[in-house]
Design a binder for these strands. Structure first.
Length: 497
RNA sequence: GACCCAGUAGCUCAGUCGGUAGAGCAACGGCCUUUUAAGCCGGCGGUCGCAGGUUCGAUUCCUGCCUGGGUCACCA
């Protein structure tokens, strides 16, 4: 407490003095529990059934109007705010003077009292018993408001993200976003459970990482005396479970990617991956589309405002092949180009390219620059080049350059990635070895050869469809938040100095 | 990583064409028994993000740095 400036120190000292006074008067400022009978919301919604009745309620004092021998204050519980009326002649001089008068904004109290309405028709509780449940000694931000509109709102983003507890107290809408996030995840889980999927957990700490193209975080295990990686994906483990005989599995997994952060990326984020044996990419596409639509419907967000876009999740999502989308833009058959021709084309769009970029990187770049930003309404992009899809199976009946894969784009952002999974062990080994070569040539996001995984596939993997969904992004969409930081309770921040 | 914007009291902000700062709220003392951004009176509270430079003098001008936001780049 030594780093505090005088003004803050003064406030804290005054509160510590009050805390001592309260103790001296025989009140316990930090009791162990409180039995409350109702929430603010229940009483506000059904006033008629509560009028004149005695109830108990608990919450934080967020507004106070002391008027000598009687006072009003609001307490806020998880469900909302409700007004209290306390009169010295009702509760007695001792409680009023020695406890109530020592209370501050931010204190948590339990109240017993009679439900009534003031002359301005505000539902209130006439306090009969007041119990201090937790004494606040550090001042909260301003909580003044009128007609639901905050004055001097607590809206400095840095302050809010670093002190989410204050954000949640001061900005009730924030709590709503995270309540909705919890509902979305429950809905996704229920959807898959009802379809017979089994929820599993796979290692976060891995001695070899894989399943995606990304740079990992590294850590160290003392007893094993070895470096470990935090997972960048759970794909290869879930496929081992398919090989082991689980026909439908899923995991809601935190992944960790050692990359930049912006409004769509956080170093740790939540993915939902699910795999279904004997299914292909078209089967899991249908499942994915239905799951997203059902989830959106359940929370009443089939139509969302996402940044400057109005997104319609109620209509069937479009399906377009990558080649078709590129042809619309370039008037060229991009898939038949070699690396050099592709590089020339990318450069012709004034896109920054480095000479060492390989075919896959060039392809990704071009698509990301000229097509992705225009994919506003939900669109499944189908049929990717093999070079950038080392875990996907070749498209049936086509030349060998294309794989069965989709990515789902909404609002110009990627939401899902799925394949008909490659289950030919010889081909899979070849593809990972090609990735290893790219690594050697300096592509530090190319995938690594996971021998244990390859051997697992050699035992025989059924035909399988698999999908990964970005849960945070789905929550962003369905809560209409344009920054990932606003759907993460504790987004990654640099440490304070 | 590049550029732009911001950082002043516990909170939200104003301000200083260079002379070491102001408001509202909160907090403190007083008055007040139906208020609701309660009100009235009084007095507190500041390393003006950090470090240098220019200057008689810097919170203000310049440079660097830190943190956050935004745009772009990188990255799924």
């Amino acid at each position: 407490m030594s780093t505090e400036h005088k003004s803050l120190k003064q406030i804290i000292n005054f509160r510590l003095e009050k805390l001592a006074d309260i103790r001296e008067s025989g009140f316990n400022p930090y009791p162990h529990n409180y039995n409350k009978t109702h929430t603010a919301e229940e009483i506000l919604i059904s006033y008629e059934t509560f009028e004149g009745k005695s109830i108990s309620i608990a919450g934080r004092i967020v507004a106070m109007r002391k008027m000598g021998k009687a006072s009003f204050f609001h307490i806020q519980d998880e469900t909302g705010k409700i007004q209290m009326y306390i009169k010295r002649d009702n509760v007695g001089t001792e409680l009023y003077n020695n406890l109530f008068k020592k209370l501050d904004l931010g204190d948590i109290v339990g109240i017993e009292g009679i439900v009534f309405k003031t002359k301005t028709e505000e539902t209130s509780i006439n306090v009969e018993q007041l119990t201090l449940l937790s004494k606040n000694i550090r001042p909260l931000p301003n909580l003044k408001e009128k007609d639901g509109e905050a004055f001097n709102a607590f809206d400095d983003k840095e302050h809010r993200y670093r002190n989410r507890h204050l954000d949640l107290i001061a900005n009730p809408d924030v709590k709503l976003v995270f309540q909705t996030r919890a509902r979305i995840i429950t809905l996704l889980r229920n959807y898959l459970d009802n379809k017979g999927f089994v929820e599993v957990e796979t290692p976060v700490l891995q001695s070899i990482y894989g399943g995606a193209s990304a740079r990992p975080f590294t850590t160290y295990h003392n007893t094993l005396d070895q470096n470990l990686f935090l997972r960048i994906a759970d794909e290869l483990y879930l496929k081992r479970l398919i090989i082991g005989g689980f026909d439908k599995v899923y995991e809601i997994a935190k992944n960790f990617r050692n990359e930049g952060m912006d409004k769509n990326h956080n170093p740790e984020y939540t993915s939902l991956e699910y795999y279904q044996a004997y299914a292909d990419v078209h089967d899991v596409l249908k499942l994915t589309e239905r799951m997203i639509r059902e989830t959106a419907k359940a929370i009443g967000k089939l139509h969302v405002k996402f940044g400057k876009y109005e997104i319609d999740l109620s209509k069937p999502f479009e399906q377009k092949s990558m080649a078709e989308l590129l042809k619309d833009k370039t008037k060229k058959d991009v898939f038949s180009m070699n690396r050099e021709e592709l590089q020339k084309l990318v450069k012709s769009y004034n896109i920054d390219v480095e000479d060492k970029m390989n075919y896959g990187q060039l392809f990704d770049k071009l698509f990301g620059e000229i097509v992705e930003p225009d994919l506003i309404q939900p669109t499944f992009v189908m049929d990717y080049p093999k070079e950038i899809s080392p875990l996907a199976k070749e498209k049936r009946g086509e030349d060998s350059k294309i794989v069965e894969r989709f990515e789902l784009f909404i609002g110009g952002m990627e939401f899902a990635n799925a394949f008909t999974e490659l289950n030919d062990p010889i081909e899979q080994r070849k593809r990972l070895e090609e990735q290893a070569k790219l690594r050697e040539l300096g592509d530090d996001e190319a995938q690594v050869v996971d021998e244990n995984f390859l051997q697992a596939v050699e035992y025989g993997m059924p035909p399988t469809g698999g999908v990964g969904i970005g849960v945070d992004r789905l929550v962003m969409l369905l809560t209409e938040q344009t920054s990932i930081k606003d759907v993460l309770l504790f987004p990654a921040m640099r440490p304070e100095v």
